[in-house]
Write a protein that binds this DNA or RNA. Sequence first.
DNA 1: TCAAAAGTGTTCATCTTACACCCATGG
DNA 2: CCATGGGTGTAAGATGAACACTTTTGA
Lengths: 229, 229
Amino acid sequence: MSFTYDYARPALTTDCVVFGLDEEDLKVLLIQRAIKPFKDQWALPGGFIQVGEDVDDCARRELEEETGLKNIFLEQLATVGTPKRDPREHVVTVAYYALVNLIEHPPTAATDAKHAAWFALDDLPKLAFDHADILKLAHERLRGKVRYQPIGFELLPEKFTLTELQKLYELILEQTFDKRNFRKKVAKLDILEETDELEQDVARRAARLYRFDRSRYRVLIKQGINFEL
Amino acid sequence: MSFTYDYARPALTTDCVVFGLDEEDLKVLLIQRAIKPFKDQWALPGGFIQVGEDVDDCARRELEEETGLKNIFLEQLATVGTPKRDPREHVVTVAYYALVNLIEHPPTAATDAKHAAWFALDDLPKLAFDHADILKLAHERLRGKVRYQPIGFELLPEKFTLTELQKLYELILEQTFDKRNFRKKVAKLDILEETDELEQDVARRAARLYRFDRSRYRVLIKQGINFEL
DNA sequence: TCAAAAGTGTTCATCTTACACCCATGG
DNA sequence: CCATGGGTGTAAGATGAACACTTTTGA
């Protein structure tokens, strides 16, 4: 079966930069390509858009097919359509970035033939196509966005300690914060709900667990409050 | 001549939301469609991407062909690919927004058969396709972006008064500012160059003209300074 | 001489930053 | 009992917001 058009069309794909957080690193989920071009090289998960499929849906579908991830935070990043970025033909890709927490989404999530694995941002393999550029763009967006929207919570488990939250921001923004000042700012945002639970199995005083309060967040957004750290 | 592919492909277009500023309004440049669908309705300038053409180049080309505008500030906004947004078939569009100053780019800029005209944001005609949604998105982006990047200058002539600058921000952000505080903030940004020229032909004390200092701006950006008003 | 907008400082409240010690826990 | 990170307050400086009058000019 084939499809014929009066004018030539570029191919259309989606690609997704999935960020995850573990104890000490910000990581990215990559897949190893099973087919040419760039066979066996690491690449961003993604694939071709189907006619009749919404672009966002395509990104979610490809992500689930190739990595098993679903129901995660996913947001459009940019569209890149430089003619030579794919050696086969002109391929325009709509890039997305996603945030997951590594504890609830373990590394061995691939469901098809390809491998999927997490890589620390400062220890990446050589990437296929222009995916290194897209990844860099995604990292910049994450750094920018995290300052005025509390999307960082997407990288944490449901309940987390304030120190974990602080480490997250330090990793993304590549700077350190004073513990007392950080806690003051977070408290003032008024989007954390204190639970009555403590950390488990730690060889020291256990820290209190907090939960991100989405409904409170929505109220504050409507009132026009901003979340800069 | 025709083109055949193994899999169906959505069509790919670019559309552009062009903002312009005159004395009292923020305006948008629209074209009147010469062909079906939505014949004679107003729409965003844009058109189909050619194979081998960079997506950004396509946006610039279509803009020049349909409105005569070139060498203006243009930035990608988002890609929308809802299947039913075009009644003919699945069309994915990469939306852009552009900023020009109306004085240097007069309203009658169309070079092909269609009309092009400026409309105040609060007095828009019914738009073709989902262009009203795209326009709304662009306006939100402009409001957001103007707060931390001095792109507002793209809407002003080369030399402008501080009052004009303030009016611009008030129009985009839909709020008013205190004249003294506004001037203090702008002065602290240190990106304006004072000229030795004054306004001409005004029936009152003439205001001093200033110029945006791009080189100074680039230096400040590298130092990581932010431009919030 | 009037109308219209230009231009200009100070005060008070708020926010930001820098900084150090005791506490609770498990090993 | 010790090592480890948890948790907490204050003071000084910087920043942001509110506010009104004199000046210049052309009509």
